[in-house]
Nucleic acid binder design. Structure first.
Lengths: 151, 151
DNA sequence: CGTGAAATTAGTTGACC
DNA sequence: GGTCAACTAATTTCACG
């Protein structure tokens, strides 16, 4: 299973995955060889799901982030699955959570501008017969974005 | 500024940043040298904000994701800044958006379990005098998580 | 699990078209 | 911007303790 050293390694790689194994070993207090073995295993085991660059949305013209809460008409299992599929396929949707509470789904939508958001709403939400209502909250500030899962 | 080749490079690196420049060049239809120059510039220009590993939350015991909407008491600028600072400092908060609409802030909180979420709520929200109310929506399914900013 | 050494591959720099 | 060559640094494999 996973020990504390693995957790420290994951903590470091979630901040920076371009460290050399020597640098990583230094950070977590181990040896480069051990770090390499562990990191490779973490990748093949699917603990590390991807290694990616994060891009500043504004720098690439996606200056509008919108948080959308969605209520489905009724929560029949096949309708829910349909909606999930649609959200996975929607390029504007960077994150989608199925939730309990006031809403059924929460979306994080990244688009160029309000026109592009309008297009998204009209083509992906209004046209979906399962969507009963939705609320849009436009992000004024992306205060924090650290897609980490442990410290 | 940024041309189409830069955008293709960013698109590729947002899926996988462990490609060699030769592989990257192949993918985007350019040369390794050109890719290296561009990627280094994209990093130094802050277009690429970070290079990180994504970790499966369940694999490391953070099986609970909660979307929290927060309303502040009044939106005085100093209070807003205080709240932002607190959220940036809160290890449980992986994302924080300041928004318009029904809420003032939307948080994505990642914790081990409901007890840990309870601790978060009590120490970071209830004790904050600026927080008027908040609503928690527990994620039943992390349908999509692609922290990309362009396709 | 850690070390060190050898082989391989990738990153980096500079000269050139 | 592309190509090539040369150098440096990192990854990978292996033998060993």
């Amino acid at each position: 299973m996973m020990d504390d050293l693995d957790r420290r390694i994951l903590g470091a790689l979630q901040k920076n995955n371009r460290l050399s194994f020597a640098e990583l070993a230094d950070l977590v207090g181990s040896s480069a060889a051990s770090c390499m073995r562990r990191v490779n295993k973490l990748r093949s085991d699917g603990v590390i799901t991807a290694d990616i660059s994060l891009v500043d949305p504004k720098a690439v013209g996606k200056s509008l982030t919108v948080v959308v809460t969605v209520e489905l008409d009724r929560e029949r299992l096949d309708l829910v699955d349909d909606f999930k599929r649609a959200m996975r396929a929607a390029k504007e949707v960077t994150q989608c959570y199925m939730v309990t509470g006031d809403a059924d789904f929460v979306l994080i939508v990244a688009v160029e501008d309000v026109e592009a958001f309008d297009v998204f709403v009209k083509t992906k939400l209004y046209t979906n017969p399962n969507v009963r209502k939705f609320k849009s909250m436009i992000a004024l500030d992306r205060v924090k974005f650290e897609p980490r899962t442990l410290l």
